[in-house]
Design a binder for these strands. Structure first.
Length: 752
DNA sequence: CTAGGGTTAG
């Protein structure tokens, strides 16, 4: 059964072992196939225009010929036609050729651009209109206000409001609601409330906007109260409250209201279905999902492309890819393909992100490439998902190609895409590229900052993470739960105890965030790594977190680092009581005994582990050479070039010894964190992968190794010497962080 | 030709 595990800073995803990785050559040849970037084409790339009939074209030709643009009716007809067909340049042409223009024609043009999302142009047109002293009516004003809220232009919108009051425009409910919605979207809650009180006429839409606004600012009680007092609740009211509660309030309550709505006999509409399917995903409640699917079929809503897209998305998020694909396939066969309709694009996008969520990276790429070859628009949603797939694959080249593809398509890097890209470069080991993306992304939000801070943490740049964090707060951006995980991890990886403690207090006292397991683990790690084992113990007791096994595991790791057997015994006792037996605990304890030459006890722990039937994760390392991923385990002899690898490794170690590398095999082989060291003959997998990398890569590109456990002490030293001897950069990604070895030093400063 | 409500990221 596929499980969906959100990625956290604590553990890197076990990089997917894709046997025949990257579709890279395919993608690069697709890069060439893509149409050259062209603003007009890209903007309306996918929207299929309404078909203009031959008659219409004829009419247009005639109109140009005999100058009947003088006739307002003919001109407006053509204008509307082109506007609805998304042929904006044609609409504009007709408009420019007209000899006289009234409010109606202006409004038609304005609405055409608004519908296409060209908000900037709408505002320009609005200005032109006033310059020509044409007085906008309620229709025009509503459209303009909507643009203002999309652009978060509070100032301009307020100007429009003032203009309305000064010029005595007829103030109907619709215009009032437009204003209300504008204030809410621009987060000027005060003005919205004030306007709402003043409005002479309110309808259910007005109430719905206000209910939504209260939910947005987190005032659940008030919102529910308003909802309850509504004398006539229409579908939209139910939809508003359920959607708002799902996003900002208690999700349970959203679910309860959905049941109540159904029991009430309210007729559900397509929006209700969309919302409830999202609700299902957030609960991962597949049974409820199936029920809703049934209802959709019974009511015949399955003909609606949007609902089908929502169904696909729900199945993906609940980990039922087979079901998602079933709906997806039927979409085309049962109803015919609506080429590049929004529904179609959303469905593809959901499938791609579904594969990514479920860790099926190869399938995600297969879907993505077939999407491109079928010339389906690759929108920002899809692109964001596929970048996240690259992050999980850990293959840098693949990520770079996708990044190039995005630039080719011409997508602007917004906060969503930016965070994905930063995360991708971060997890693929290129700190520089992550920093570049960060610098180039204009509208930075918390998530983007958090991605960058976490990236620094992952690469051991503690000071830089702290600097970014301080800078972010000075910019007035509020850190959230995840931001603190990032900055605390950075502190623990870099030994910044004082800062770490300060931020932990800041989080609780100033930002009122309740620490979670991840935050506590960071703190335990922070004290523990620094060798303050008694403080660690106190911290655990003071915070009442001795039921969290992650915390104890981190503590045990620190005991090994500082070779404190007494403490380690005590900690593993606690740990083994708490969790289902985990190999890591036994091996860690056994290795701690071994470091003190207490072989008997070490062996005892290991046989205890075996008798309890605990299976260990074999240590694995992999390296990508060309389009192939090569995987190694300790003492591996299965590789076709195994003789060459071992011969080279022997030679290399000999030369390393000459420059000071020493390894007491007996001790070294035991001194491993989570890996057993009983095989004296073998080498750890990361050494094998490194050796293979050196002999098969002729260029001076850095050697990138990935490992599913932590790098051991000896291998760490080995890498340092190798980087010096060969003047070669080695980048190792282990389960917790990256190590950049360069000229005999590691970026972690040996503090790991 | 006009108002509210549904898919992306750390």
């Amino acid at each position: 059964m596929p499980t969906i595990t959100p990625l956290t800073m604590q553990t890197l995803p076990r990089a997917a072992v894709i046997k025949c990785v990257p579709k890279s050559p395919q993608i690069s040849c697709l890069l060439k196939k893509l149409p050259p970037f062209n603003f007009h084409q890209c903007k309306f790339y996918s929207r299929q225009p309404l078909l203009l009939s031959a008659n219409d074209s004829l009419l247009h030709a005639k109109a140009i010929k005999n100058g009947s643009f003088q006739n307002l009716d003919v001109a407006s007809y053509l204008l509307r036609l082109y506007g609805k067909s998304k042929c904006l340049s044609d609409a504009r042409k007709v408009f420019d050729e007209m000899s006289q223009r009234d409010v109606r024609t202006w409004t038609i043009l304005v609405s055409s651009f608004a519908r296409a999302g060209s908000n900037g142009i709408v505002l320009e047109l609005f200005r032109d209109m006033q310059n020509e002293t044409v007085k906008p009516n309620q229709f025009t004003l509503s459209i303009v206000l909507k643009c203002c809220s999309s652009l978060s232009e509070l100032r301009i919108g307020k100007g429009v409001h003032g203009w309305i009051l000064r010029n005595g425009v007829v103030f109907d409910v619709v215009l009032g609601n437009s204003l209300l919605d504008f204030y809410v979207k621009c987060e000027d809650f005060g003005s919205a409330k004030w306007l709402f009180e003043l409005m002479e006429e309110r309808n259910s839409v007005s109430w719905n906007i206000m209910i939504g606004a209260h939910l947005n600012i987190g005032d659940v009680e008030k919102a529910v109260d308003m909802f309850r007092r509504l004398s006539s609740k229409d579908v939209a009211s139910w939809n508003t409250i359920i959607d708002g509660l799902m996003r900002n309030g208690p999700k349970r309550m959203a679910l309860e209201l959905l049941y109540e709505m159904v029991k009430n006999g309210t007729v559900l509409d397509e929006v209700t279905f969309s919302i409830s399917l999202v609700l299902v995903s957030s609960f991962m409640d597949i049974e409820l999902g199936k029920q809703i699917h049934g209802r959709v079929l019974r009511l015949g809503f399955h003909v609606d492309g949007f609902i089908r897209a929502s169904l696909i998305d729900m199945y993906c998020k609940c980990g039922k890819m087979e079901m998602a694909l079933e709906v997806f396939k039927r979409m085309n066969s049962d109803f015919g393909r609506k080429e590049n309709s929004i529904e179609e694009i959303v469905s593809w996008s959901s499938i791609v992100s579904g594969f990514v969520l479920n860790g099926e990276i190869e399938d995600a790429f297969k879907t993505f490439t077939s999407m491109i070859s079928k010339e389906i628009e690759v929108d920002r949603f899809t692109v964001t998902s596929i970048v996240s797939a690259c992050a999980n694959s850990g293959v840098l080249e693949l990520g770079q190609q996708v990044h190039a593809l995005i630039q080719k398509i011409g997508h602007r890097v917004d906060a969503h895409l930016g965070s994905s890209l930063i995360d991708m470069y971060s997890k693929c080991g290129s700190l520089d590229d992550a920093q570049m993306v960060f610098k180039q992304t204009n509208d930075k939000n918390v998530v983007l900052w958090t991605s960058m801070i976490s990236c620094c943490a992952l690469h051991g740049q503690g000071r830089e993470a702290v600097r970014l964090f301080e800078f972010m707060m000075s910019e007035g951006i509020k850190p959230n739960v995840v931001t603190f995980i990032g900055v605390l991890t950075a502190c623990s990886h870099a030994g910044l105890i004082e800062e770490g403690c300060r931020y932990f207090r800041l989080m609780k006292e100033v930002y009122g965030i309740k620490p979670g397991v991840d935050h506590y683990s960071c703190m335990v790690d922070l004290y523990g790594r620094a060798g303050q084992l008694n403080e660690t113990k106190n911290f655990i007791h003071e915070n009442g977190i001795d039921h969290m096994s992650a915390v104890w595991r981190s503590f045990l790791s620190s005991c090994r680092l500082h070779r404190d057997i007494k403490m380690a015994e005590w900690v593993s006792e606690k740990l083994l009581h708490l969790e289902p037996p985990d190999a890591g605990t036994y091996i860690l304890l056994s290795n701690i005994y071994a470091t003190k030459q207490r072989w008997e006890e070490a062996a005892e722990v290991r046989s205890l582990m075996q008798s309890r039937g605990v299976k260990k994760h074999p240590g694995q390392s992999w390296i990508q050479i060309k389009n192939q991923v090569h995987t190694f385990v300790m003492g591996d002899r299965s590789h076709p070039q195994t003789d060459k690898i071992y011969a080279y490794l022997d030679k290399l170690i000999g030369r390393l010894r000459e420059i000071g590398y020493s390894s007491d095999t007996k001790l070294v082989m035991q001194d491993v964190e989570e890996e057993q060291g009983e095989m004296l003959l073998g080498f750890h997998s990361e050494k094998l992968a490194t050796a293979y990398g050196i002999i098969s890569m002729t260029s001076q590109k850095p050697i990138r190794i990935m490992k599913n456990l932590r790098v051991c002490n000896d291998c760490h030293t080995f890498m340092k010497y190798t980087s010096q001897l060969l003047d070669r950069e080695i980048i190792v990604r282990d389960i917790r962080r990256f190590h950049h070895f360069k000229r005999g030093c590691c970026s972690c400063g040996d503090y790991w």
